[in-house]
């Protein structure tokens, strides 16, 4: 199977993924962190756009599952010589990979890749489209921190317009019974978002009664059109930047990273115990191991994978 959009997964599949993740989380605490689940399998990580945590965690996840892992980046590959995406994938297909983990700066590139390969394609972020594995690791972090997801309240704050994380998380969170609201300047809400049935608020005061404030990265590098949606990062941080003083007792803060200290949140909040940002990274490894394992399904229930 492929994992291109969060919509590809049912609630049951997500819960099953989390059970598997629990096991892999335990593996990460062992002195020997490697299991043979994907021995003999080939995993190709194709990253056509910069990444630190996603590439690292997918590479580490594959290696801990004993897969043969190869990384390809746009720079230093034949992509930089002008090879088309189609030809790059057809070329790799000759090596019969089992899994293609792909990041690309264009929406829909991962879906296109599925047409030219027999491998399972995992979307590791396509332009402003989706980032389903981020959504799954965020849900897993929430489950670890809060237990039951159903009925939780989460405010997603900021640059929804250009965020692939938002486009996966809004739908994935709601699928799992989380009450989602969007907060930010109307210029950072994509036109049409009002038809998603998610409440939209402009004032940051709207985060006052949520359990978790999920901050999105301001993606000035993804400017579309020539008029920036907000006048300046300075004004954005003054109105929508989160500081420890704004947090109510019990509230937690999440961010997909990389954070812009002083923009979406103050530096001291990033380092605060109420920030789950590093907790998310830790969850990411276990969840991505589970994803790699599951996309090569079917695995019979109770399969002794560890």
């Amino acid at each position: 199977m492929h994992l291109i959009s969060i919509d590809d997964l049912s609630v049951e599949q997500i819960e099953s993924l989390f059970s598997t993740s629990d096991g892999f989380l335990e593996v990460a605490s062992r002195p020997i962190k490697k299991v043979p689940a994907l021995r003999g399998r080939t995993q190709v990580n194709m990253f056509f756009e910069a990444s630190t945590r996603t590439l690292t965690s997918f590479e580490l996840a594959g290696k801990r599952l004993s897969a043969d892992v190869v990384n390809i980046k746009a720079s230093g590959s034949s992509v930089s010589k002008g090879e088309s995406l189609k030809d790059t994938i057809l070329t790799l297909e000759s090596y019969r990979p089992d899994i293609l983990v792909m990041r690309h700066d264009k929406v829909g590139a991962c879906r296109m890749a599925t047409r030219y390969t027999n491998a399972s394609v995992v979307n590791a972020g396509d332009g402003a489209g989706e980032h389903p594995t981020q959504c799954l690791l965020d849900l897993y972090s929430l489950r670890r921190e809060f237990g039951d997801l159903r009925g939780m309240k989460v405010a997603i704050v900021g640059d929804v317009l250009r965020s692939r994380v938002a486009r996966s998380n809004i739908f994935g969170f709601r699928k799992m019974g989380i009450d989602v609201r969007l907060v930010g300047p109307s210029t950072l809400m994509p036109p049409g978002v009002e038809r998603w049935g998610v409440p939209i608020y402009e004032d940051l005061a709207a985060v006052h009664d949520v359990d978790v404030i999920y901050l999105l990265r301001m993606q000035m590098e993804r400017a579309r059109g020539k008029v920036p949606p907000v006048p300046s990062l300075r004004e954005y941080s003054r109105l929508w930047g989160l500081s420890p003083a704004r947090l109510r007792p019990g509230q937690r803060v999440m961010h997909p990273g990389p954070i812009n200290r002083g923009v979406e949140l103050t530096g001291d909040l990033a380092d605060d115990a109420r920030s789950l940002i590093l907790h998310q990274v830790e969850s990411g490894l276990a969840v991505r191991m589970a994803i790699l394992y599951h996309v090569l399904a079917p695995h019979p229930e109770g399969d002794d994978l560890i």
Binding site: G225, P228, P231
Partner: peptide, 15 residues
């Protein structure tokens, strides 16, 4: 002159 600027300004000022 720029319609995108007008659109952005109306959205932003409206709030």
């Amino acid at each position: 002159r720029d319609l995108d600027l007008l659109l952005t300004a109306l959205r932003y000022a409206g709030s």
